[in-house]
Simulated assay, not measured.
Amino acid sequence: MGSTYVSDPIIFLMDTVFSFYILAVVLRFLLQWVGGDFYNPISQFLVKITHPPLRVLRRYIPAVGKIDTSSIVFVIALQMFSDLITLTLKGIPFSFAALILLSISQLISLVINVFVFAVFVRALLSWINPGSFNAASNLLYSITEPLLVSCRRVIPDIGGIDLSPLLVLVGLQLAKMLIIPPLQELITLVG
């Protein structure tokens, strides 16, 4: 009982700090990937808090086209370190392969959740306050528009109602259901 009394708050604090920073790196990567507005105050915040380690990594890890590989390497390393500490403090045995797979599955889940949240909030904002412009809605537009445009090619507006957010949400949920369980199976096999 003594070990969980101390380790649970440590795990909670560590997981919270790492989760927020990992989210910041993922958002920066996604905004860079979709060509988001980096003059936006929220983008500027993300750049300032993630730039120091990424500046160092970019010296050694070049980008591949529009993909910032240094951000990918950095976020995987952060997630692995966070998972390593959590599993160690909980006393759960694991292999290095299981740690890599666990980290990758958590990052894939995070990216899907970011897209789900962004599409959902953007759809809500379009109903509640259509045509409004602010820093957050601009970022939501940048992140979601590539997905929504591709879905609008499949389902055009029907009676003035855009069903592309619904199609994107269904597609993202299906992707999560098809990608994450096989990774979790692999984790248990190599764990």
Rank of each mutant, 00 (worst) to 15 (best):
R58E: 07
R59K: 14
Y60Q: 05
I61P: 00
A63P: 03
V64D: 01
V64Q: 06
I67F: 13
D68L: 06
T69A: 13
V73L: 12
F74Q: 00
V75L: 05
V75T: 11
I76R: 05
A77S: 13
L78I: 06
Q79E: 14
M80F: 06
S82R: 15
L84R: 07
L84S: 11
I85H: 06
T86W: 00
T88R: 08
L89E: 01
L89N: 01
G91Y: 06
I92C: 01
P93D: 11
F94D: 05
F94A: 10
A98C: 12
L101H: 10
S103W: 11
I104E: 05
I104T: 14
I104L: 15
S109M: 11
I112Y: 11
I112L: 14
I112A: 03
V114S: 01
F115W: 12
V116K: 10
V116E: 09
F117P: 06
V121S: 07
V121G: 08
L125A: 06
W127C: 02
I128Q: 07
P130S: 05
S132E: 12
A135E: 09
A136N: 03
S137V: 10
Y141E: 10
Y141I: 03
I143V: 13
E145Q: 09
P146K: 12
P146M: 02
L147R: 08
L148A: 03
L148K: 08
V149N: 09
S150F: 08
C151W: 08
C151D: 03
R152V: 01
R152F: 00
V154S: 03
D157P: 02
G159H: 02
G159Q: 03
G159S: 02
I161T: 05
D162A: 01
D162Q: 03
L163Q: 04
L163V: 03
P165S: 08
P165T: 07
L167S: 04
L167R: 03
V168D: 04
L169K: 07
V170R: 09
G171F: 09
A175N: 04
M177F: 15
M177T: 14
L178C: 13
L178D: 12
I179P: 08
I179C: 13
I180Q: 15
I180H: 15
I180W: 15
L183I: 15
L183R: 12
Q184L: 15
L186G: 12
I187G: 12
